[in-house]
């Protein structure tokens, strides 16, 4: 643990470069239809892949996580705002774990 601050800055530097380089160097509007479609679909794919199945191990039990997942999907489909979706999902998980 001696160089802990050096290690922290190394982590920060690498993470920063990953995030900043494309923003800094892709300055033109991409016109290639495939690439344009690719970049516009990236958010949906990558965020979906991150949510599922990891969400199932985000709480204390599979059952409470499943109920939380169903809640967040249902409320999102009903176009509730992010805050409502988050609070409701947390509340449902909390209550489920109390009852179990």
């Amino acid at each position: 643990m001696s160089n802990v601050y050096a290690y922290i800055l190394l982590m920060a530097g690498i993470t920063y470069l990953i995030r900043a380089l494309p923003l800094l160097f892709i300055r033109r509007r991409i016109t290639n239809p495939f690439l344009r479609s690719f970049l516009s679909y990236v958010p949906y794919v990558t965020l979906s892949v991150m949510v599922f199945p990891d969400v199932l191990s985000a709480t204390g039990s599979l059952a409470s996580a499943l109920i939380g997942f169903v809640t967040m999907m249902g409320l999102s489909l009903a176009r509730k705002n992010m805050f409502v979706v988050a609070i409701a999902s947390c509340a449902v998980v909390f209550v489920t774990e109390l009852l179990m």
Binding site: L47, S48, V55, S76, A86, C90, V93, E97
Partner: peptide, 19 residues
Amino acid sequence: SMMNALGIALYAMLTAAIV
């Protein structure tokens, strides 16, 4: 149990951003 409940919050936000 509070930590467990809060653990799901970020997933809920990501879902609410795309779905």
